[in-house]
Computed example of a mutant assay.
Amino acid sequence: MRNNVIETVMGAVVLMIAGFFLTFAYTNSGYRTSNDSISYHAVFDRVDGLVVGSDVRMSGVKIGSIREMSIDPKTYLANVVLAVNSQIKIPKDSSAEIVSDGIMGGKYLALVPGGDDDMLKANAQIEHTQSSVSLEAMIGQLIFSPKNKEAEGDKEKSHP
């Protein structure tokens, strides 16, 4: 009988600790289910590495997340819907760019505020966008650029 009471108490302690860790993880994950956000649209040539749920940041601070991504069947451009904290007012001439979070990090959408006095309204389109830069394409361009081939040819000529 005494073993059953000890096992029951230990089980309850384990469940309380697990509950504590789950609560701690949820509150520190940055996940918010707030309806206190405004949606905006942006159109990009390419959105490599960006996924639904990726951060939307301004000055490095998370102010929202990517809500939806789709392809326009007429233009074949990527439409991105982003949800931004309603307390953040975005000037009309602001720009949106897809940037990397370090060399091996993920991608996020960075909003660069403009200087216009008029602010974007809900569901407005952000006109100025900069698409994702492909690291692989840049490396390939560096390796196979004509400038590098000319430099190699000069080295071969200088050595007998």
Rank of each mutant, 00 (worst) to 15 (best):
F21R: 08
I90L: 09
G114T: 05
S70W: 06
S134Q: 06
I17S: 10
A83V: 07
I38P: 02
F20A: 14
G49A: 08
F44W: 07
I98C: 05
G53L: 12
T129L: 02
I90G: 03
L50P: 01
E152Q: 12
E152L: 14
L135D: 00
L22I: 15
M138P: 00
E136W: 07
M104I: 15
K147C: 00
P146H: 05
S39G: 02
S37N: 10
S29C: 06
H159V: 15
A78R: 14
V52T: 15
S100T: 12
S39M: 06
Q130F: 06
V13E: 03
N85G: 02
V99Y: 01
S94T: 11
F21E: 08
G49W: 07
M58R: 07
M10S: 11
M104N: 07
P113M: 12
G115R: 02
D116T: 09
K62G: 11
V5Q: 10
T33D: 05
A78C: 06
S100E: 10
V5N: 05
V47F: 03
G60D: 07
M104W: 03
F20V: 15
G30A: 05
S29K: 03
V81P: 02
G115S: 13
S132W: 02
L82H: 00
G11R: 07
Q87G: 06
D101Q: 12
G153T: 15
K74A: 12
V133Q: 00
F144D: 09
I126R: 04
V61L: 10
E7N: 12
R2S: 12
M69L: 08
I139Q: 05
G106F: 05
D154M: 13
I17A: 12
I139G: 01
K157C: 01
G105T: 11
S54T: 11
A110N: 15
